[in-house]
């Protein structure tokens, strides 16, 4: 298989293009202040989201007749009823704005990343850690506000724990709540990053097998190009899976945020 000899260097190129670079494709030092490729696509996602939202709410009606309004309304209703109301027992309306913002931003970023040539802004640790830190700050704020300073600190220990082990449990629970920053961020990042690496590898394999046929057409090169049909089919299937993953990851991130907010909002 001599076509496969080129694979390692192509994969290296792919990994390099998926790392955080300057928007013009050059590497930069950590001390430099530049617009990186992921931040550029985050701005693109924010602009697209703002335009979609503006079009959707431009003329609100009791029975929406535009497709954009219908789509946005059904998603917003999904966030309100399934995520917010399902996980926060009382007063979920107050937190709907925050959760819907998270959901729509992550969903738009993930979908933008699926367009060939674009990158998902959620495919870098910088953006996902920023998102999860925001969630962490928000649910702690909700906890301190709703339960009072000491009440919230006490609520880390469940009821019925013997007094002797309560301090140990408290330390573990506080530590695990700090770990939420890490787990939320890494789950989203790993899904988007790995998904794009896999899509990229299948695209590289497709092009590697078809390359000899394009260079000179002969019976041998046509037979050699046959595997690329299989790679292309696999890539299409994985692409469809990635569309599902884009939705599921936005859903999971928002749902977990709702769970954390719901737990912090009430004494239990």
């Amino acid at each position: 298989m001599e076509v496969l000899k080129k694979l390692p260097e192509e994969v290296d190129l792919l990994l390099r293009s998926l790392s955080t670079l300057n928007v013009n494709g050059q590497e930069y030092k950590p001390t430099e202040f530049v617009l990186s490729n992921y931040i550029f696509f985050m701005c693109v996602a924010l602009t697209v989201l703002a335009i979609i939202m503006y079009v959707a709410v431009k003329n609100l009606k009791m029975v929406p007749d535009s497709k954009v309004s219908n789509a946005v309304e059904s998603l917003a209703q999904f966030v309100r009823d399934d995520i917010a109301a399902g996980m926060i027992p009382h007063g979920s309306k107050k937190y709907f704005g925050f959760l819907a913002t998270l959901f729509f931003f992550i969903l738009t970023s993930n979908i933008i990343g699926l367009i060939p040539g674009c990158k998902p802004s959620t495919g870098t640790m910088g953006v996902t850690v920023a998102l999860s830190t925001t969630v962490f700050a928000y649910f702690n704020y909700v906890g301190f506000k709703n339960q009072g300073f000491l009440g919230y600190l006490k609520s880390f220990v469940p009821h019925g724990v013997p007094l002797a082990v309560a301090p140990v449990i408290w330390v573990i629970e506080v530590f695990s709540s700090f770990l939420r920053i890490f787990t939320l961020a890494v789950r989203l990042f790993a899904n988007m990053y790995a998904g794009h690496i896999i899509l990229g590898i299948f695209a590289i394999l497709t092009s590697l097998f078809i390359e000899p046929m394009i260079e000179h057409l002969s019976a041998g090169s046509v037979v050699g190009a046959l595997p690329s049909i299989g790679w292309l089919a696999l890539m299409t299937a994985l692409y469809l899976l990635e569309v599902l993953v884009a939705f599921v990851q936005a859903y999971v991130f928002t749902l977990l945020s709702a769970v954390y907010i719901g737990a912090a909002a009430e004494a239990h």
Binding site: R187, F189, A190, N191, Y193, A194
Partner: peptide, 13 residues
Amino acid sequence: AAFVEALALLGFV
């Protein structure tokens, strides 16, 4: 499935 999948992807990434 999403929770479990994250573990596998973590190893990969």
